[in-house]
Amino acid sequence: MERWYFIDTRGHASTNAALRLSPHLFQRPGEIRAMKWVDVNLDEAVWTIPAGETKMRREHRVPLSRQSVAIIQSMKGVSDYSEFVFPSYNPNKPLSENAVNGALKRIGYGGVMTAHGFRTTASSLLNESNLWNPDAIERALAHQDSNAIRAAYNRTAYWDERVRMMQWWSDEIDNLKLLNGV
């Protein structure tokens, strides 16, 4: 059984939802935990992370799969009182830095998986699939080209491919759950 997808109903709703969403989005854990309602457009299935809240200080748009939209929508009744999709016990603050990592430890993945590890897993498996342009994968991870000249000229967002890729990736996660009886 894939325990990383296990939902501990005794745990905090925000932690459970952030843990479930992390593998689907494979964004930086700090960005996921601080996700704000104002930055999420569920009708258009896009999360726009403002420049001031990203590591690279550039706005980053993330296509949301059907599964991601459903997980975020599940927080509607829970966190409507907060600006954060995943508030801590104090609705004026997001989840703590260690919330998702703590949940991973509680379900038996301490020392094996971290919240940031979902990025590595997604990048590796998407690249191994040979279905997606490596540049689209890098853009999905909010990475900039390491070649400064290429980065200066190639500003392609690969948006349409990233939308398809994110849905394919979420479907793959669902397939893994089915294979493992979760």
Rank of each mutant, 00 (worst) to 15 (best):
M1K: 13
E2K: 14
E2N: 14
R3V: 05
R3Q: 11
W4P: 01
F6K: 11
T9P: 00
R10N: 14
R10E: 12
G11Q: 14
H12G: 07
H12N: 13
H12L: 15
A13R: 14
T15M: 10
N16E: 12
P23Q: 11
P23C: 09
P23R: 06
P23G: 05
H24C: 04
L25C: 11
L25A: 06
F26K: 02
F26P: 04
Q27A: 02
Q27P: 03
R28E: 03
P29N: 12
G30D: 07
E31D: 07
W37A: 07
W37N: 05
V40N: 03
N41A: 12
L42M: 11
L42E: 02
D43M: 15
E44G: 05
E44A: 14
T48P: 00
P50Y: 06
A51D: 00
A51Q: 01
A51S: 02
G52W: 07
E53W: 07
K55H: 00
K55D: 00
R58E: 04
R58K: 13
E59V: 01
H60R: 04
R61I: 10
V62W: 00
P63H: 02
R66W: 07
Q67P: 03
Q67D: 09
S68Q: 02
V69S: 04
I71Q: 00
Q73M: 07
Q73C: 05
S74V: 06
M75Y: 12
K76W: 04
S79A: 15
S79P: 00
Y81T: 06
Y81R: 14
E83R: 15
F84S: 03
V85R: 11
F86S: 00
F86I: 03
P87L: 13
P87C: 12
N90M: 08
N90T: 10
N92C: 09
K93G: 01
K93A: 10
P94I: 02
L95D: 06
E97N: 15
V100W: 04
V100I: 15
V100N: 04
N101S: 10
L104G: 01
K105G: 08
R106W: 13
R106K: 13
R106Q: 09
G108R: 10
V112G: 05
M113S: 04
G117Q: 13
F118N: 02
R119N: 08
R119S: 10
T121F: 12
S124P: 00
L125N: 12
S129F: 14
N130S: 13
N130E: 14
L131S: 05
N133K: 09
D135K: 15
R139I: 14
A140Y: 10
A142W: 03
H143A: 08
H143G: 05
Q144I: 06
Q144D: 02
S146G: 06
S146T: 11
N147W: 11
N147T: 08
R150C: 03
A151W: 01
N154D: 14
N154P: 06
T156Y: 04
T156G: 05
A157H: 12
E161H: 04
R164Q: 14
R164H: 13
R164I: 09
M165C: 09
M165W: 05
M166H: 04
M166S: 05
W169Y: 02
W169E: 01
S170Q: 07
S170N: 07
D171G: 05
D171H: 08
E172I: 03
E172Q: 09
N175D: 06
N175R: 15
L176W: 14
L178W: 04
G181M: 02
G181D: 02
